[in-house]
């Protein structure tokens, strides 16, 4: 089975400095592979290990500045290739930086068509930095494929379909979907493998292809359509920040309960 895994270089939100009321300093924060996308890569590789085929990772660079992000993207690609992907296709273009999810999906669809065919596309259900969860669904629509998100398990049967175990609302479901299809995975599906030294060294020899939008025959994102981010501001966290220190646990407990009662919480 030929599987494509979608990988986003997400902003490392843990390392992001944010001052309330100001814009978080996204240019200074590093990017790394979004964690849930690593689950998608792991699943893709384990499917190939079970049934054969290939794994190609696709990524569209979304954060600038491109000069800095390219280096991080190469590191990210190395990690994904070391996990067992066979090749990495990176769409890097100034015009795609900051593009909305519709454009990202269109770019991915073009890259998938150019380097396909694929039987299955796997992606994380969301990314740490945005958690919109929109790109896989948009991509499925763009390709005209069925879309099954939130997979906690994927079982590859014969006969051109896979079974997806997932939970939505108050129900657990097993969904059978015909291929080709787009599936998003949760963090529950597996534990991404940590590559070994040899695997990282060998990853350096695997193909990393960098494509521009014109390589894909795509114009830049058109004006007046979709979503434009006009500002990002850190929320003012209005937490009281009272630290309760006391001689004994009993005293601390009494002080806490008193504070909560006074605040009308209990």
């Amino acid at each position: 089975m030929d599987v494509a895994a979608l990988v986003k270089l997400a902003l490392d939100v843990e390392g992001l400095r944010a001052e309330p009321g100001e814009a978080p300093r996204v240019d200074q924060a590093p990017t790394k592979v979004s964690e849930i996308d690593l689950n998608a890569v792991e699943e893709a590789v384990s499917i190939r290990e079970r049934v054969g085929g290939s794994v190609t990772a696709f990524s569209v660079l979304n954060w600038g500045p491109l000069s800095r992000r390219m280096r991080e993207a190469r590191e990210a690609a190395k990690r994904v290739l070391a996990m067992g992907a066979d090749r990495f296709v990176l769409v890097a273009d100034e015009a795609a930086v900051g593009a909305d999810t519709g454009f990202t999906a269109a770019a991915l669809a073009a890259a998938l068509r150019a380097r396909g065919p694929f039987d299955l596309v796997l992606a994380g259900e969301g990314t740490e930095d945005s958690f919109g969860g929109l790109v896989p669904g948009r991509l499925a629509q763009e390709l005209g494929w069925p879309y099954v998100p939130y997979a906690d398990g994927v079982e590859v049967g014969g006969g051109g379909s896979v079974r997806v175990r997932r939970a939505v609302g108050d129900f657990e479901e097993v969904v059978e979907v015909d291929l080709p299809a787009v599936i998003s995975v949760t963090q529950e599906i597996n534990k991404p493998r940590i590559p070994t030294l040899m695997q990282i060294l060998q990853a350096g020899k695997k193909p990393l292809e960098v494509l521009s939008l014109s390589d894909l025959g795509l114009p830049g994102p058109g004006a007046g359509r979709g979503v434009r981010v006009s500002s990002v501001v850190s929320p003012r966290v209005e937490r009281r920040g009272v630290v309760i220190e006391a001689e004994s646990p009993r005293e601390a407990a009494e002080r806490l309960v008193e504070e909560l009662r006074r605040a009308g919480v209990i």
């Binding site: 990690r79 990282i200 060294l201």
Partner: peptide, 12 residues
């Protein structure tokens, strides 16, 4: 060092 041709592997 990488610029001088060193192969760097992190996370190992």
């Amino acid at each position: 060092a990488e610029g001088e041709g060193v192969t760097l592997v992190s996370g190992i």
